[in-house]
Measured scan of single mutants.
Amino acid sequence: VFVDDHLLEKVLELNAKGEKRLIKTWSRRSTIVPEMVGHTIAVYNGKQHVPVYITENMVGHKLGEFAP
C-alpha cells in the first residue's frame, strides 16, 4: 500500500496529539489507511483543495477518487 511519507507523518502526528484539523495535500495517489479515519483531508483536484472527510468505508481507496 502506498502513502506519501509527508502525509502519513502529518496524520500520525495529529493522532498522537489527539487533534483533528484540516490537512492539505497534493498527493491524490496516496491510499487511504485506517490511521486517517476521522480526519478531514483537503485533496487538490488541479484547481482547488476539496475537503474530504475520511470514513471507514474509504480505507483501501485512493484520495484522488474522492476529489473529482
Rank of each mutant, 00 (worst) to 15 (best):
V1D: 15
V1H: 15
V3F: 03
V3W: 05
V3A: 02
D4A: 04
D4K: 01
D5P: 15
D5I: 15
D5E: 15
H6T: 14
H6C: 15
L7I: 04
L8K: 04
L8W: 13
L8M: 13
L8S: 02
L8H: 03
E9D: 09
E9A: 15
K10Y: 14
V11T: 02
L12M: 11
E13G: 07
E13F: 08
L14D: 02
L14C: 07
N15K: 03
N15M: 03
N15T: 04
A16I: 09
A16H: 08
K17F: 06
K17Y: 07
K17D: 05
K17P: 01
K17R: 12
G18T: 04
G18Y: 04
G18S: 07
E19Q: 13
K20V: 07
K20A: 05
K20G: 02
R21T: 10
R21C: 15
I23L: 09
I23N: 01
K24E: 08
K24L: 13
K24Y: 15
K24I: 12
T25R: 02
T25A: 02
T25I: 01
S27H: 04
R28L: 05
R28H: 05
R28S: 05
R28N: 04
R29M: 11
S30L: 02
S30N: 02
S30A: 03
T31G: 12
T31W: 10
T31Y: 15
T31I: 09
I32S: 00
I32L: 05
I32R: 00
I32C: 09
I32N: 00
V33K: 04
V33L: 12
V33Y: 04
P34S: 10
P34Y: 14
P34A: 12
P34L: 11
P34I: 14
E35L: 14
E35S: 10
M36K: 00
M36Y: 07
M36P: 00
V37L: 13
V37K: 12
V37M: 14
V37G: 04
G38W: 08
G38S: 11
G38H: 11
H39M: 03
T40V: 10
T40C: 14
T40N: 09
I41C: 02
A42E: 06
A42M: 05
A42V: 04
A42D: 05
A42Q: 04
V43D: 00
V43G: 00
Y44Q: 03
Y44G: 03
Y44M: 05
N45D: 13
G46E: 06
G46Y: 14
K47L: 10
K47C: 15
K47S: 10
Q48H: 12
Q48L: 11
H49T: 03
H49W: 13
V50E: 11
V50C: 13
P51H: 05
P51A: 13
Y53Q: 13
I54H: 00
I54E: 00
I54G: 00
T55Q: 14
T55V: 12
T55S: 13
T55E: 14
T55L: 14
E56F: 14
N57D: 13
N57M: 13
N57R: 11
M58I: 13
M58L: 12
M58E: 08
G60K: 07
G60R: 07
G60I: 03
H61W: 12
H61K: 12
H61C: 14
H61F: 15
H61G: 08
K62C: 13
K62M: 11
K62R: 13
L63G: 00
L63H: 00
L63Y: 01
G64P: 00
E65V: 10
E65Y: 12
F66H: 07
F66K: 04
F66T: 04
A67Q: 05
A67V: 08
A67K: 03
P68K: 12
